[in-house]
Simulated scan of single mutants.
Amino acid sequence: ALYYGLNALSNNMIMVDRKQLKNPNGLILGTPGSGKSFSAKREMTNAFLITEDDIIVCDPEAEYFPLVQKLGGQVIRISPVSTDYINPLDINTNYSEEENPLTLKSDFILSMCELIVGGKDGLQPVEKTIIDRSVRMVYQEFLADPKPEKMPILEDLYNILRNQKEPEAQRIATALEIYVHGSLNVFNHRTNVDVNNRFVCYDIRELGKQLKKLGMLIVQDQVWNRVTINRAQHKATRYYMDEFHLLLKEEQTAAYSVEIWKRFRKWGGIPTGITQNVKDLLASREVENIFENSDFVYLLNQASGDRQILSKALNISPSQQNYITNSNAGEGLIFYGSTIVPFKDDFPKNTQLYRIMTTKPEETVQN
């Protein structure tokens, strides 16, 4: 069990093991300055020191790297000018429960192509068929002899599409060209960073609008790769997604996020979404699935409108609402299965760990 603060009523320590829940998936929700990121870092640090779990962070604001570096983790900076690369076509033989991992990988590549090619109406049935056929061709050599140097990259998929006869294949290949030979070719490389480090942070702040959605989708697939490898080793994987509402804005990344929420549990994955934009979160059609499949919610101070929405969604009583109304940083409500506990977490500020974890500029450690 990990420490989450003190019970605001009894002052007893709150010790929680999310793995004991029917569904360990979680959400950390709160206004800016309420302590969302700090709470996430606190849980990560506890998990790192007390458990054997692997920890992965998708970091859109580049605020986790001091902690990751201090704990000996791997920060992967993904941007058009970075030399850190991850390959969206990475696959391992445990990627799917089925004998053939290609079915699930094809589904991911279809989602990726839909973001790149789809437009308003998405991919047409003929285009989906062509992509699926090309995916199966591009992995033939690797699956016959799974050596790292035989892992395909995006350019291999592009070349196979160019060799198809249908005009739709040429349209897809042309749309992919900027990501293969053009200025957005950051994802056309083999993975050259340590994605197997126990603590990995994907820093995507500098991806820009054109690439951020695609980058988030590819990071999710990298996490799925890791979860499938860890499952075979009976190891849990904790995955934190900051600015989680961004993933729910696009249909493809939203659908993939819901799949993670539904599928991760039986594979030993523990996903956590972190966001301040509760209205945006609840505006997504997919969010009902997220809430229904989250037995752990860490609720910090809420704005008035968000408070009303959440009270209805989580059945919060008027007296419990007081703990998320104008509350101090690190105070709120913890939902653990059917239990609701008010908490406070006064982390000592005169520690090096506090200075590494805080996001307040005047309090951060100077490197």
Rank of each mutant, 00 (worst) to 15 (best):
T45G: 05
N46E: 15
A47E: 12
A47H: 00
I50N: 06
T51W: 13
T51F: 13
D54V: 13
I56N: 11
C58E: 15
Y64A: 07
Y64M: 10
F65K: 05
Q69N: 15
Q69S: 15
G73S: 10
V75F: 07
V75Q: 02
I78Q: 04
V81D: 14
V81Y: 04
I86D: 04
N87R: 00
N87E: 03
L89E: 01
N92V: 08
N94W: 14
N94E: 15
S96A: 11
E99N: 13
D107C: 05
D107I: 05
D107Q: 12
S111M: 10
M112E: 11
C113S: 09
C113Q: 03
E114S: 13
I116G: 07
I116T: 11
G118R: 07
G119Y: 06
D121E: 10
D121R: 07
L123N: 01
P125I: 07
T129P: 00
I131G: 05
S134H: 00
R136L: 11
R136K: 11
R136F: 10
R136A: 11
M137A: 14
Y139Q: 02
Q140E: 15
F142D: 10
L143Q: 07
P146Y: 14
P146G: 10
E149Y: 11
K150F: 06
I153W: 04
L154I: 03
